[in-house]
Simulated assay, not measured.
Amino acid sequence: MAERIRFSKAAALQALDAKAMRIAKREGFDRGKGASQLNPKDRMFDEDVRKAVEYGRMSALEEFACSIEEGFQFEPKDQP
């Protein structure tokens, strides 16, 4: 098992950024363009799309909370 990195504000921010970059790369998102990347364009403010985005936010927060509960440590892969 790789060496784990202790929790700190800087490590937490790096972990969050690294996870966001991986999602952006996997999904082909430009992190600077926001919701305009959602398709189809006429559904951008559709209730189903809004709910899916909120579910993603909730899942991300749950995952981050779990990481903290597991000893305030992050795997090296969560670093940029």
Rank of each mutant, 00 (worst) to 15 (best):
Ala2Gln: 09
Ala10Cys: 02
Tyr55Ala: 14
Pro80Phe: 06
Arg26Ile: 04
Ile68Asn: 03
Lys9Thr: 05
Ala11Cys: 02
Asp78Met: 13
Glu75Arg: 10
Phe74Ile: 11
Met58Asp: 08
Leu38Pro: 00
Ala11Arg: 09
Leu61Phe: 06
Ala60Ser: 11
Asp42Val: 08
Ile68Glu: 10
Pro76Val: 07
Gly56Tyr: 07
Arg50Tyr: 02
Arg43Ile: 03
Ala52Phe: 03
Phe45Val: 05
Arg6Tyr: 10
Ile68Met: 15
Phe64Asn: 02
Arg6Lys: 15
Phe74Lys: 06
Glu70Arg: 03
Lys51Asp: 12
Pro80Cys: 07
Ala2Gly: 06
Lys25Val: 08
Gln79Asn: 10
Phe45Leu: 12
Lys25Pro: 01
Ile23Val: 14
Ala35Asp: 00
Glu54Ile: 02
Ala20Ser: 14
Glu63Val: 11
Ser36Tyr: 03
Ser67Arg: 14
Glu54Trp: 01
Gln14Asp: 13
Cys66Phe: 12
Gly71Met: 14
Glu75Tyr: 01
Asp17Thr: 15
Met44His: 04
Asp17Asn: 13
Glu75Gly: 12
Arg31Tyr: 01
Val53Lys: 07
Cys66Trp: 12
Gly34Gln: 02
Phe72Ile: 08
Ala12Gln: 03
Ala10Leu: 09
Gln79Val: 00
Arg31Thr: 08
Asp17Glu: 15
Asp48Cys: 01
Phe72Glu: 11
Ile68Pro: 04
Glu69Ser: 11
Ser67Leu: 14
Phe72Arg: 10
Cys66Glu: 14
Leu16Asn: 03
Arg22Leu: 05
Asp30Ile: 07
Asp42Ser: 08
Lys9Arg: 12
Arg43Glu: 11
Asp17Arg: 10
Met58Pro: 00
Ile5Tyr: 01
Arg4Thr: 12
Lys77Met: 06
Glu69Phe: 12
Ala10His: 10
Arg22Gln: 05
Ala52Gly: 04
Tyr55Phe: 02
Arg57Gln: 08
Met21Pro: 00
Ser8Tyr: 05
Arg43Cys: 06
Lys41Trp: 08
Leu13Ile: 05
Asp48Ala: 05
Val49Trp: 00
Ala11Tyr: 03
Asp78Ile: 05
Ala65Glu: 02
Phe29Met: 13
Phe64Trp: 09
Phe45Trp: 11
Gln73Lys: 10
Arg4Ile: 10
Glu75Asn: 05
Gly28Met: 08
Phe64Ile: 09
Phe29His: 11
Arg57Met: 03
Pro76Gln: 08
Pro40Leu: 04
Pro40Phe: 06
Ser59Gln: 15
Leu38Val: 07
Ala20Val: 10
Arg26Ala: 14
Lys33Val: 09
Asp78His: 10
Ala24Asn: 09
Arg22Gly: 02
Asp48Phe: 04
Arg57Tyr: 03
Phe64Glu: 03
Leu38Gln: 01
Phe64Arg: 07
Phe45Ala: 10
Leu16Pro: 00
Lys51Ile: 06
Phe74Trp: 12
Phe7His: 15
Pro80His: 09
Asp30Pro: 01
Glu70Gln: 13
Arg57Asp: 02
Gln37Val: 03
Arg22Cys: 04
Asp46Lys: 05
Ala11Thr: 09
Ala24Ile: 06
Glu62Trp: 12
Lys41Thr: 12
Ala2Leu: 10
Glu69Leu: 15
Phe29Ile: 08
Ile23Pro: 00
Arg43Val: 04
Pro76Phe: 13
Arg57His: 06
Cys66Gln: 15
Ile68Thr: 07
Ser67Tyr: 11
Gly28Pro: 07
Phe74Tyr: 02
Glu62Pro: 01
Ala65Asn: 12
Gly32Pro: 01
